[in-house]
């Protein structure tokens, strides 16, 4: 039972890691790509780590996995924010459909 739940979480997480990788390729500019790291990758990592913690059962290692999980959940959005802010403050322009811009 625990194995099944753990595996389901791991494969769910794998899907979102996949989506974030695809997003990094397909999105047209830096700001849109940062959505891939700030959201999809965060959730993907949280799900995979959570799944492994469920699979491992209640051990010290699983508690450490939960710590990593919390850390990634707080750290990834913060890092994304720091990067986008640096880009904005050095006047990096956003991609906009209205400008008819093409992919960078």
């Amino acid at each position: 039972m625990r194995d099944v739940v753990g595996l389901a979480l791991i494969f769910g997480g794998l899907f979102f890691v996949l989506v974030s990788a695809l997003g990094l390729v397909r999105f047209p500019d830096f700001y849109t790509r940062s959505h891939a790291l700030g959201k999809s990758d965060t959730l993907g990592t949280i799900l995979v780590l959570g799944g492994l913690a469920v699979y491992g059962g209640l051990t010290l290692s699983s508690l450490k996995l939960l710590l990593i999980l919390i850390f990634v959940g707080l750290g990834n959005p913060t890092a994304t924010h720091a990067l986008t802010r640096a880009a904005l403050r050095s006047r990096h322009e956003i991609w906009s459909r209205r400008e008819g811009g093409k992919k960078e």
Binding site: H35, G38, K39, P77, T80, T84
Partner: peptide, 9 residues
């Protein structure tokens, strides 16, 4: 940043 479609810049 974590909620739908938006990132704090």
């Amino acid at each position: 940043t974590l909620t739908p479609g938006t990132v704090t810049v």
